[in-house]
Lab assay of single mutants.
Amino acid sequence: VEPFVCAQCRTDFTPHWKQEKNGKILCEQCMTSNQKKALKA
């Protein structure tokens, strides 16, 4: 199985991968920080 790479921070290690609607693969940490930024905006 090919390891995923986060589209935002380029890490290849995370407990959980998330896929955005646009198809980008993000690590759990980037997904969480993006959600917090969206709530602040």
Rank of each mutant, 00 (worst) to 15 (best):
H16W: 10
T11L: 13
K40D: 13
F4W: 12
C6L: 00
L26K: 04
V1C: 08
V1F: 05
W17Q: 15
Q19E: 13
F4D: 13
E28H: 08
L26V: 04
P15S: 07
E28K: 08
I25T: 08
A7K: 11
N22C: 14
A7T: 13
E20A: 01
E2N: 15
R10K: 14
C9Y: 00
P15L: 09
V5T: 10
K36Q: 12
F4C: 15
T32E: 05
C30I: 02
Q8E: 15
A41L: 13
K21Q: 13
V1R: 08
K18M: 09
A7F: 11
V5E: 04
T32R: 06
P3T: 08
R10I: 15
E20K: 01
L26C: 08
H16Q: 06
E28P: 05
E20W: 02
K18F: 02
L39Y: 15
Q29W: 03
W17D: 14
K18L: 04
L39K: 09
K37P: 12
E28Q: 04
A7C: 14
L39I: 12
C6R: 00
C30Q: 00
E20D: 01
C30S: 00
N34P: 03
V1T: 05
R10L: 15
G23R: 10
C6T: 14
C9V: 01
A41G: 10
I25H: 14
H16E: 08
Q29R: 10
E2D: 15
L39E: 07
F13M: 13
N22D: 10
M31D: 07
K37E: 12
T14I: 03
T14R: 04
E28I: 01
Q29K: 11
A41P: 06
Q35V: 02
N34I: 07
V1A: 03
Q19F: 05
D12S: 12
T32Q: 05
I25C: 04
T14Q: 07
V5H: 13
P3G: 13
K24T: 05
I25Y: 03
T14F: 08
N34H: 07
K21C: 10
A7W: 04
K36F: 02
V1E: 11
H16S: 07
M31F: 01
D12E: 10
T14N: 05
C27M: 00
G23V: 11
K36V: 03
F4H: 12
Q29P: 06
C9Q: 07
V5Q: 12
V1G: 10
E2A: 02
K18R: 08
H16K: 03
F4P: 04
K36D: 04
F4M: 15
L26H: 12
K24H: 10
C30M: 00
R10V: 15
F13W: 04
M31Q: 11
E2F: 07
W17N: 15
K36W: 03
C9W: 00
K37N: 04
A7I: 11
Q8I: 14
V5K: 10
E20V: 09
P3M: 14
V1I: 03
T14P: 12
Q8A: 15
I25D: 15
K18T: 05
T32H: 00
T11E: 14
A7V: 14
T14W: 01
C6I: 00
K40G: 11
